[in-house]
Design a protein around this nucleic acid. Structure first.
Lengths: 127, 127
DNA sequence: CATCTTACTCACAATTTTGAGCGTTATTGA
DNA sequence: TCAATAACGCTCAAAATTGTGAGTAAGATG
């Protein structure tokens, strides 16, 4: 539970009001978020596909991250009819899609100034 | 202290190895980091100027963030000679400078899909 | 000598984020 | 009836990040 009156929270709000940059960063800086967005963009639109791609993630954590991305309108959940059990397709919104080139830019920036080796996923931004 | 063998840490490493995107995000997603980079870029190259700009930050926290950005080679500290007490000028490296357009893109993205009001700092990315 | 300033360091506490375990719904098929 | 699958919800604990308080150096100034 977030304490709205903590220094931590007030500082966060200060930054949010300073520039949209900070709230934008908050949206995508969660542990698996950027990779999930990229993975969906590259075609992994089902829960099970994402789970496969992000092999180290647990179902519960994936579920939570997807829910948060949905709350922030980065993606939408679309029930797939006539499937059993009922499946859900994850689709990026225009907000989510416009994020992708920025993530690619970040990826390239990271590659230009590397600190560690990089073993790309199939969904890796430049893979 | 970081526990190198925690699930948390292992998952982080998994993402770092998946794509540079994730390590790049880690570098700039700290509480004040992006705003500090932008603020230095726009001319606030002294500790006291940054403190003034980011009015809610404490000296201790500012110092720590600057040190981390220095460790990640986003900026360098240049002692200013013939000042008393000895001042330090903060300068972005090329790595830091190349980050700026990405931060601007993020800021614009945030503005295009706003969730809250935005009262720009003088250093705000599009201000 | 006491004090001010700049730019910090260090240890510790508060807060937030992330992960783990367990349970749920709904439907199909053996 | 039992198992299996998709996609979660809930609660709690572990870990990480962020903030606080106190203190430091070195030269200038009163």
């Amino acid at each position: 539970m977030k304490k709205e009156t903590s220094s931590n929270s007030l500082n966060e709000q200060f930054l949010f009001q300073s520039c949209e940059l900070n709230s934008a960063l908050k949206v995508i800086s969660g542990r698996w978020k950027a990779q999930i967005v990229y993975s969906i963009w590259s075609g992994n639109d089902r829960f099970s596909l994402l789970k496969q791609e992000l092999s180290a993630i647990s179902e519960q954590v994936l579920s939570r991250q997807l829910k948060e991305l949905e709350t922030q309108a980065i993606l939408v959940k679309i029930p797939i009819p006539e499937t059993v059990p009922a499946g859900i397709s994850y689709r990026l919104t225009s907000k989510g899609i416009e994020l992708v080139p920025i993530l690619q830019a970040l990826c390239n920036w990271g590659k230009q100034y590397p600190e560690e080796n990089c073993i790309p996923l199939s969904a890796c931004v430049t893979g």
